[in-house]
Nucleic acid binder design. Sequence first.
RNA 1: GCCCGGAUGGUGGAAUUGGUAGACACACGGGACUUAAAAUCCCGAGGCCCCGGAAGGGGCCGUGCCGGUUCGAGUCCGGCUCCGGGCACCA
Length: 862
Amino acid sequence: MEEKYYPQTVEEKWQRIWEDNKSFRAVTDRSREKYYVLEMFPYPSGRIHMGHVRNYSIGDVVARYKRMRGFNVIHPMGWDAFGLPAENAAIERNIHPEAWTRENILYMKTQLKRMGLSYDWDREVATCEPDYYRWNQWIFLKFYERGLAYKKSSFVNWCPSCLTVLANEQVIEGACWRCDTEVAQKELEQWFFRITEYADELLNDLDKLNGWPDKVLTMQRNWIGKSIGAEIEFPIEGRQDSLRIFTTRQDTVYGVTFMSLAVEHPLALELSRDTAQEPAVRAFIERIKKVSTARRGEETGEKEGVFTGSYCRNPFTGERAPIYLANFVLMEYGTGAVMAVPAHDQRDFEFAKKYGLPICLVIQPEDRPLSAEDLTEAYVDDGVMVNSGPFTGLKNAEGKEKVAAYLEEKDWGKKDIRYRLRDWGVSRQRYWGTPIPIIYCDRCGIVAVPEKDLPVLLPRDVPFTGKGGSPLAESRDFVVTTCPKCGGAARRETDTMDTFVDSSWYFLRYTAPKFDSKPFDPKEAAYWMPVDQYIGGVEHAVLHLLYARFFTKALRDLGLTNVDEPFSNLLTQGMVSKETYRCEEHDWLFPNELAGSEAEGWRCPKCGRPAIKGRVEKMSKSKKNIVDPEELIAQYGADTARLFTLFAAPPEKDLEWNAQGVEGAFRFLTRLWRFVMQNSEPLAKAGKVPDDLASDLRDLNRLVHRTIKKVTEDIESRFHFNTAIAAVMELLNAVMAAAQKEAPDGRIAVVKDALITIVTLLYPFVPHAASELWEGLGQKQPLNEVRWPSFSTEALEQEKLLIVVQIDGKVRGKITVAADATGEAIERLAIEDPKVKAFLAGKRIQKIIQVPRRLVSIVLEK
RNA sequence: GCCCGGAUGGUGGAAUUGGUAGACACACGGGACUUAAAAUCCCGAGGCCCCGGAAGGGGCCGUGCCGGUUCGAGUCCGGCUCCGGGCACCA
């Protein structure tokens, strides 16, 4: 063992040992209890960043800790390898996406290995491999068979310059992210997954997820957005059909004064045909349709509309209501038509005011009278129904039920539940993704690729221009095929799947990564699933985590797994941030490097002003506040990088980068190292811990056990690694203080004992240094095979207790009592304490409250 | 607008069920070692005030703000302020 702490040497050594011994291979063993710990797999963008370091350090602590607790741990890693950046690299730098991706995977894998993460690399998967994506296709076909995958026409964001569909995330302020052209709405045929079929289960099962943060549960609840209400039919004057609307406020149906339709509503134009309103309606539809749904009325919130010239009849009142088109009504939600109750809906109120439509009050608050004329805004709260025919006088909550029942009885409509959640559009006009296994035949129509023909391989010979729609359409060899049904000429679907499909089931693939007759082996999944601890960024709170839950349920219904929920516990780690440096005057950002070398010396190229400290922001290239983990590891080693990120903040909080903090972490490891080294000879000779110890050594021994308890609880129940590490630091401080005293009384044996504990407790956090020190302390069995230490309640027993004495709630004294002192004895000691006595002089005690082992509280008479 | 978080020293953060607020660390100040520096080690430290020559001792205030419950509140309750995040015309 080296005198000095050279992390690089130590880390290389142990990484090789672990690799050679396949120390972290997970082997199915039904006699043992499994533990599945998983971090969200990375996109192979090129290099790992500090967010990865944090994510994987957290996961590795859990994995190593659980192994020491005797669990059969599976801790896999892989690559979310399909995606747009690879295609952009192809367009910009003329590298094939596949080559670019493979290079990145190789590089990042060596980076991850250098962090000493305890992965079972034998289970590695990359979603861009045919062995993986063929199962995306297989699942797609199963979904298609069951009606869970279907094709429909829908409105999408369309860039008229790039001639491609854009995801919502790729629309920046209404314009294309690549060419800045204004994005239009276009109706396209797209493949969808019917996630809405699972809406109710996805919502209800959130209650089972006790190990998830409330924040994420709430976000998913809101995203699914269940609304309970009714569908009502309003007959249209002069026509056979009627207008179907959805409402959650059927209790206000007597207050309807008009109707509103989305411009996309099938009847929008038709209702104005041959009326004076037709030109106005036509113009309005055209104008509003141009604006993407997301942006309508964004700036002003201004309600706009136009009268269609038609009326419908309220079945409850028999009154006629004019039908309007309105810019705020969405075609995607409900039926694209709403009943307007201006008195009790703010949007309808504003609309009615603008167009001079009547306002009819049908809910009265119970504490004050309202009249329609006095309203300055809609009254949306609960109250009593008025002007509501047979329902007048009911509380509106009760009215909701009664009105719904009544309209079913009269056959005017039905009770209904709607969700905000939409079906998942999975078609992408991109190259670097899974080809959708569908063939179009002029005679047979849409034909699924037969299972035996999978995988549909992604062709390599495709030009990357960045223009035009699906790149796959450019590959003749790919497109031209024969129909599996009739053998006639046919063409392949040229869209690929959303990459979120890949990540929706990868955790199942890890359980049997080489299995070749199904996406995964149900027997293996039955043992390893569900994931016991999932760790990743909160940015996936809705999308990925919702899709993965949906897939798990759908695959369960295909008989492949018996779990309802994939992730029992979820930890969403905070982001890694760092201060930025900027020019005060111009919007100029300065780069600032590792080790806090401040951005001093940088001057603004526009005005020459020196850099000043800006806001603390999430690390990003554009903010120029990146710290490259590779440099960090090269300088301090992986253990320091891990220790710093784990110590600086609890995992769920944001972590602010602090170069001095890194130094501090490194210093702690060096201090421990040096202490063990400098005392190697006496430590080697240390004998057994003698039975009778000096009092300070008994204290040290007690602290050892207290630390084991604290670290165990901090890891186990809260993932509060920062306090766990702090406790170990405290123990080291105490050990070093105890070792300073000279005495041949078995001191060194106690010190050695404590050091062994320290090193064991540190192993999950800093595995390389801990393993080396463990060896240095003469321990033979490899540390990664050692059991987690246990504490004895007996050793925790204190001989003396410090009791705080309060008078009227203020601390006035502290007394030390024997651990077995009686309440009366403690009370007597408290009152006799000189300081306390001084405060009691001339006062009378009203009562005394004792908290066992903690405090005595004396209350004086007033 | 709605829904979630959060606010504690110069800084990151501790205080797990209401019981000594500020653990641990960073930064800082002082000292030791050194020709010197770095490194290392030791000591100090929430604020204000008082007693004492000093070592030391003591008091009051203090966890975003206002109020409440309690012998006792960072922690519980009511009402705000500010910050962060998510959703946002969802009928």
